[in-house]
Amino acid sequence: MSELATPRKRIRPEIIIVSLLLLLPISVAVVFFLPRYYVFTAPGEIVSVQELGVDGSVNFTYVREGFTKNLYERWSTKQAFPDAEFVSADASVEKDFSDMQDMGEDYRDETIRNAITSADDEVGSDTDTEEPAGEFEQRLEALIEESTDYYGDSLGLMLAIGLVEEANQEDFSANGHYVIAGTGTIEADHTVGSVGSIRDKLRTAEQFGADYFLVPKDKERFYYEGLSNEEEASLVAEELGLTLQVVPVDTLDDALDFLRTMNP
């Protein structure tokens, strides 16, 4: 009996070892890129109203918000913003966030409009002068143009204060002696409306050395779930042992009164 010997191809052991070793980085990459959604918030910055082209001394506060689609994005976001806090989410967050951004732009434009009219009313009540309609639209467009990097209406109050400073040639910072920051919308009736992310905004203001932080005085008129801005700010300031002074304000007048008392 004769046997036909067929030559067997032998895989070189190096190839097997390399393949096994390369499986490790490939597996890690797969795990890191599997869809897994998170929303995050992180402290941002306090920004002078001068950045929006207003000759004032106060600052508005923005925080970073967004979503990540996988563990790699979450990790790289954490690298860029170490204080970021993440909450698990689902795939719908992508659409929700896009809608929120669109709405945020509308709200921002609305609060800028209210800030100009509130400041005009405030200045007008002192000096009995009124801005012509053409100038108003021009100013509105210029401010919207300058604030395209931000969305949401929380810059309204500080913008209105800045516009009053500009019109009255006032300087609430006492020539840079105080760092005044804050958050809150400004409504058509000059009241200061509630906003989100109070915790991160306070952390941001503290990081940037703010002495005073203006928040909406909304305990009596907070229609949403959870703590009002006023209550949350007071709790966070106590919990984190913040050195800045939280100042709840109900209206633009209220805020201006405080700032003028501070600088008699």
């Binding site: 070793l21 390369l22 980085p25 990459a29 890191f32 890129f33 790699y72």
Partner: peptide
């Protein structure tokens, strides 16, 4: 961005394996 991310993660793990090797 995605390609860079995948390569970045793979390179980090690869780098550690190579140090040991």
């Amino acid at each position: 961005y995605s390609l860079d991310g995948i390569v970045d993660i793979m390179s980090r793990v690869l780098y550690i394996s190579i140090i040991v090797l």
